[in-house]
């Protein structure tokens, strides 16, 4: 039983970070109907910004997290300006934004490789990695920070989307962009805002994953970006609550598959799950009608 609850905690910690990544994908999909393949790249750069703020500027982990989020938002702005906005001006197929954002992700990854080198880096051990005994399970300081931050971010996001005016505008734009525009919402601004918000969340997830895996490298964006995509499919495209739940499901599924056997297949778990889900429920586990996968 102890092993089980311990793995559950590990899975929740990992899953919370996955959920934060996937929310970034799903927000952008909601307003633009595109899959932002550059999200993994921004996630990776966010992790590096957080790392550099801690090691070079000597900041604490929370200021560094906020710094990384600001950096992520700036990147998101540039992404929207250079890779997405030009495509909106003309009628293009859904292939164009996919390829354009793939281009951005390759660019970010290769720049990171050039600037920071291929070696794996890790956060200095400022936060205690000592395990605290909570009876049924043990939890480390890093895990508390990671899980807590992710949950706080998700709660804040949910509050913002549901209670504030700008959140309402984001939801309206994602429901139907033309109608939102007719109702006086500046949809261009909302799109920029959403991409920046999603990128800030991606960067935050980068710091969290960097902390809990204690490994930051240029290729982490691609691997983690793919898992975010898996969660996106699981939760249903454009569905924020679905992405949250999907993130936790994937995190727990991965940790348990490692704990009970197939550790080398860890990276295949995510996509094994989505192929299974696509067989059973192609519109995603939590999808509402309308935004689903059926034509």
């Amino acid at each position: 039983m102890n092993v089980f609850s311990q793995q559950l905690i590990n899975g929740l910690t990992l899953g919370s970070a996955y959920a934060v990544i996937a929310i970034g994908y799903t927000l952008v999909f909601g307003v633009l109907n595109i899959v932002n393949m550059a999200h993994g790249g921004i996630f990776m750069v966010g992790a590096y910004i957080g790392l550099l703020l801690v090691t070079e500027a000597g900041m604490g982990i929370f200021p560094a997290l906020i710094g990384a989020m600001i950096g992520g938002a700036v990147l998101g702005y540039l992404l929207e300006l250079f890779a997405l906005r030009p495509l909106r001006r003309r009628k293009v197929t859904h292939l164009a934004p996919l390829i354009s954002t793939i281009g951005v992700s390759i660019f970010l990854e290769s720049v990171a490789l050039l600037v920071w080198g291929p070696q794996t880096r890790s956060f200095p051990s400022t936060i205690s990695s000592e395990l605290m005994d909570m009876g049924a399970f043990k939890i480390s300081g890093i895990q508390i920070v990671s899980l807590g931050t992710a949950v706080v971010l998700m709660v804040l996001l949910a509050l913002m989307l549901n209670k504030t005016k700008i959140g309402k505008a984001v939801r309206a734009t994602s429901e139907n962009i033309e109608t939102a525009g007719l109702l006086g919402i500046n949809t261009g601004l909302i799109i920029t805002f959403t991409v920046m918000l999603a990128s800030a969340l991606g960067a935050a997830a980068g710091v969290l994953i960097g902390l809990s895996f204690n490994a930051i490298e240029p290729t982490m964006g691609t691997a983690m970006g793919f898992k975010g995509l898996a969660v996106l499919i699981m939760g249903g495209l454009g569905n924020v609550e679905g992405a949250m739940a999907g993130g936790f499901i994937l995190g727990i599924a991965e940790v348990f598959s490692v704990a009970y056997g197939a550790s080398t297949y860890r990276d295949a778990v995510a996509f094994g799950l989505i192929i299974l889900i696509l067989f059973l429920r192609p519109e995603g586990l939590f999808s509402k009608a309308g935004k689903g996968g059926r034509p």
């Binding site: 899959v35 793919f226 080398t264 295949a268 996509f271 192929i275 059926r294």
Partner: peptide, 28 residues
Amino acid sequence: IPTIRLRGLYLAIATLGFGEVVRVIALN
């Protein structure tokens, strides 16, 4: 069979996932 009926982006992600699964299997 399951994926071809999906809308464009679903297919892109599903096939991308397929590629990754194949690579992990080949690794193991």
